[in-house]
Computed example of a mutant assay.
Amino acid sequence: MSWFWPRRKAAAVVIDPGTWRQAAAGLPWLRAIDADRNARLHPLAAEFLQRIAITPLHGLALNEVQRLRLAMLCCLPLLEFGREGLHGWSQLLVYPDAFRVQRSHQDAHGVLHEWDDELIGEAWERGPVILSWADVRADIATPGEGYCVVAHEIAHKLDALDGAMDGTPPLPRDWQKRWASDFQRAYDALCTQVDAGRETAIDAYAAESPEEFFAVCSEYHFSDVATLRSAMPEVAAHLQRFYGPPLLG
């Protein structure tokens, strides 16, 4: 697990303009980006490539353009928050497709339960971000369907920056209070719907925990903001302030 070892500062990354144009052309989120946010994205993506090692696994090969696209996608949620969002991790692991992880849990009676999960993304609180390349590509191909695995996992990384993965990233104190109140109210309402077996406007996985609620709502901000605004206007307003105006209608 080499990402836990200290590394020397890497040389600054210079992104070739032609490579940038080619990478940007393949991302729907950048088709209507304004000049100011595009100017902020460029140094963020360069710093990402400097600080974060992109490691393809299981025979996957990623070319220069694909690596830059991953950096761009990971940095879109940081356009307002800034480079501090890259703090605390140094590796992006990329599987060709969904990947399996072994889980274990000891219940109240001391019985150990073990099982396998199939995942398309994961963010370790003090470790790497892990993505399925097939699912990243699917989100790029159909960007308006409520799914964005990169936004989901980067939301978890932002959430963890204050030392607690609880659905509230680091914020100014007054904003944090309003955020926590509005998110809790929306989360509780969603859990009530799920517990009653009613259909929900957003993915019911958001009811798993407050941190998953934040991450799933972040996906909707980047992929289907109209649904989020209709179902949870207060949450949508907080996320627009946190991430900036949505890049898709």
Rank of each mutant, 00 (worst) to 15 (best):
R178E: 11
E153F: 11
F222V: 10
L190C: 06
F183Y: 11
Q193R: 14
L161S: 08
L171Q: 08
A164N: 10
R198F: 11
A215R: 14
S209H: 12
E219D: 00
D203N: 15
V194N: 00
D195C: 02
E211H: 13
K157W: 12
R185L: 12
Y187E: 03
C191V: 15
A215M: 12
S181D: 06
C191S: 13
A206R: 03
E212W: 14
P143Q: 08
Q176V: 05
K177S: 06
E211L: 09
Y187P: 05
D166C: 06
F183P: 00
S181C: 05
T142I: 12
T200P: 01
A215C: 07
A206H: 02
Y220D: 02
T200Q: 03
D162P: 06
A160V: 07
V149A: 04
D188W: 10
V216I: 15
A151S: 12
V194A: 00
T168M: 04
Y187W: 15
M165F: 02
D188K: 15
A151E: 00
F214K: 09
C148K: 03
Y147W: 12
A155P: 10
E153K: 10
G163T: 09
I202A: 01
P172N: 11
P169M: 07
Q193I: 05
R185I: 10
L171T: 02
Q184L: 09
G146E: 00
P169R: 13
D174I: 14
D203L: 03
D139Q: 02
A180I: 07
G163R: 14
E219T: 03
S181Y: 11
S209G: 02
H221S: 11
I154Y: 04
I140S: 03
I154N: 03
G144R: 09
I202Q: 02
E145D: 14
V216A: 01
A151D: 03
I154D: 00
E211S: 13
C217H: 13
P210S: 04
K177Q: 14
G146W: 09
A215D: 06
E211A: 12
A155D: 05
D203W: 13
I140K: 06
H156W: 04
G197H: 01
Y205G: 06
Y220A: 00
V216M: 11
A138I: 06
F183S: 01
D162A: 08
E145C: 10
G167K: 12
E212Q: 13
Y147V: 11
P169A: 06
R185K: 15
A151N: 03
C148V: 03
I140D: 04
A201N: 01
A186K: 06
A186W: 07
D174V: 15
A207L: 00
A201M: 01
T192Y: 11
C191H: 11
G167A: 02
L171W: 09
P170K: 13
H156Y: 03
A206Y: 01
A201I: 05
A186H: 03
E153V: 10
C217T: 15
V150S: 01
S181Q: 14
D159H: 09
A151W: 07
W179P: 09
T168F: 04
V150G: 00
E219K: 07
Y187N: 07
E219A: 01
E212M: 11
T142D: 08
L158G: 05
A204W: 12
I154A: 01
Q193W: 10
D159C: 05
A215K: 14
R185T: 15
